[in-house]
Design a protein around this nucleic acid. Structure first.
Lengths: 256, 256
DNA sequence: GCGCGGTTTCCGGAAAATGGAAGGCTCGCC
DNA sequence: GGCGAGCCTTCCATTTTCCGGAAACCGCGC
């Protein structure tokens, strides 16, 4: 049901209005925070005049703004709205003190993430004291199959999501990245029975991460915490206890 | 147009589509993070079926989500997008280390804010060690006339904005809140010549805040920092130096 | 002057948006 | 059990708003 709607036609709407406006917003990402109108139109694949009209409306409301060079950027109003998202900033707020404790104790990188579709979204990350440089960005996305948090979230996702991910193309980063569906399935089973995940050098060759699930009152996994450490500095098993304890504390804080 | 009385009320669009979708999103605020469809329609003042259709489209994209009780809430995707806003998270990111330094030194509440229209939007706040409880929320709005950051931002806004604010109704919080336009004008002039603002018990009777402007390369004021302390604990003048130094450091960090 | 990239405005035509009505659904109360 | 009150969802005739090619409008550099 993808595109191919290019025909020189007289006039008339060609698609739901809102979805076009949202496609326009999708043109922004971490590498493209400020765009010209033409860039926006190109990236969203729509006529210039259409993009112009839509962007005008979005501007009027504050979803996008123009900077002093005339470039369009994501507006403050959108950020305000976003800061009301329960699964993002809401979760972050209640989890933060526990994450900081974990960081204090271990001096390592701590990460908090949730699943969105077939990807991980990082909600918070605290940089440990002089440990491995982190590649993640708050608000950024990542594959479910490589990171510690990702494996936890995937292990407790619906089978439908799991199949989607395992049957699709699997991101590859290092020689240790597991890309074999069969092996991944085994790993996920282990995550479920152990109560924690280990991603050993699957993202970069010098890092290892251990993740644990955060559950809601009814037991459903809604998020995950992880600790990212330099490979070889500690055993994964040694960290697992700490991470699980932290995750359980957050789970408890979430339920009332 | 001409009087055109129709008996069977026909149907047809009554307003720009996108603006309606955005009005729908406006229904969410800090006190209403989860709403039923009916509430949404009521708050946005539109027919149920219209709200339903629009919300469906927003859901499909991830701008809103449904929680397990069927309530609608702001979606994670929106937060992701919002985290790309240069004036919000972008500014926050570069300013954070300086704000933390200021907090370490003074042990007091530190706030970072920008102006949006005729209001203040708080971009970051760090809670000092056992000082005055803060009323602000990251992502929250406030009047320009009462807080330390607000006075700074108002003092350096265009005359048009200043007139808008001074001629409009002015929020009143305590017996010390300045609501007289003439007196406010004098305060703003003082802010410009001193390089810092003082809000003495204008928000609560036990707090005092001192703000300073953050400037871009060309000198334009783009944000403000403030320190919020218990009334009587220190003199405003004593704090002003620290706040200004911090603001200047951030200004410098912003320019390259 | 001329061309070039980006931006803005225009306007006839037609698809997409609208919202009242009707159908389900789940409670809680008589 | 029957019944009403809310809430959610689907339907569809009616028209209003959206669409987008074209053309004007900017600087800017040559």
């Amino acid at each position: 049901m993808v595109n191919d709607r290019r025909r020189g036609r007289p006039s008339g709407p060609t698609g739901p209005v809102i979805s076009r406006a949202l496609r326009l917003l999708d043109a922004f990402d971490a590498e493209h925070r400020a765009l010209t109108l033409s860039d926006l139109a190109r990236r969203a694949d729509m006529p210039l005049s259409t993009a112009h009209r839509l962007v005008q409306e979005l501007c009027a409301w504050g979803a996008v703004e123009r900077d002093d060079d005339g470039l369009y950027q994501v507006g403050l109003r959108l950020w305000e709205l976003g800061s009301l998202a329960p699964r993002g900033p809401g979760l972050r707020e209640t989890a933060l003190p526990y994450l900081e404790d974990l960081c204090q104790i271990t001096r390592e990188n701590v990460q908090l993430a949730v699943r969105e579709g077939t990807e991980v979204v990082f909600v918070e990350r605290i940089a440990g004291f002089g440990s491995v440089p982190v590649l993640t960005r708050v608000g950024g996305r990542w594959a479910l199959t490589s990171t510690g948090v990702g494996l936890v979230l995937l292990a407790h996702a619906s089978t439908e999501v799991q199949e989607d991910v395992l049957n699709g193309p699997i991101e590859h980063h290092t020689a240790k990245t597991v890309t074999d569906p069969v092996q991944l399935r085994r790993m996920l089973a282990a995550v479920r029975s152990n109560g924690y995940s280990v991603s050993d050098r699957q993202v970069t060759m010098d890092a290892l991460s251990v993740g644990a699930p955060i559950r809601r009152g009814d037991g459903e996994v809604v998020a995950a915490v992880s600790l990212v450490v330099r490979h070889g500095s500690t055993t994964a098993h040694g960290l697992a206890g700490l991470v699980r304890t932290c995750a359980q504390a957050i789970s408890r804080a979430l339920t009332p």
